[in-house]
Write a protein that binds this DNA or RNA. Structure first.
Length: 129
DNA sequence: CGCCTGACGAAAC
DNA sequence: GGTTTCGCCAGGC
């Protein structure tokens, strides 16, 4: 069974706002937008929320388009499993990512989230998948 | 229409 | 335990 299809179905169930998922990106944005202020999550966690087998790559990759999104997608709250700001270089300027994080009370040291485990917000847990 | 790339992750060595 | 490789899926060229 194609995982991608499953994911679509799942998200639809979670967000039956009558809004159909144009792309898998939309799903990612939705989840990322739910990240509370002062919290962070990982690409893998989001991927897991979408169905688990969806290769976290697509999640982060989808974020590259997030900058074009009208509503601010807190992409800066999404980091890799290491807690490292892998995509900070994609921001403009690159340092803005950690700057925003610090502004929210998140400590960033050496491009890495301090106490990442504590600040980690698991969408799967919140969504109850 | 086919190959390459990509902000990850986990398994293998 | 650190480093390297493969796998995933979708979009861009």
């Amino acid at each position: 069974m194609p995982a991608a299809k499953k994911v679509t179905v799942k998200l639809k169930t979670v967000r039956p706002s009558g809004k159909r998922d144009e792309s898998f990106f939309e799903l990612v944005y939705e989840v990322v937008r739910q990240i509370p202020k002062g919290r962070v999550t990982s690409y893998g966690a989001v991927a897991a929320c979408l169905g688990t087998k969806l290769s976290a790559r697509m999640v982060g990759w989808a974020m590259s388009s997030s900058g074009k999104m009208r509503p601010k997608v807190p992409a800066h709250r999404v980091v890799n499993r290491n807690g490292v700001l892998t995509g900070k270089h994609h921001f403009s300027p690159p340092g803005s990512m950690e700057k925003m994080l610090k502004k929210e009370g998140i400590k960033v040291r050496n491009d890495t989230i301090v106490d990442f485990e504590k600040l980690f917000w698991d969408p799967v847990k919140e969504f109850g998948i």
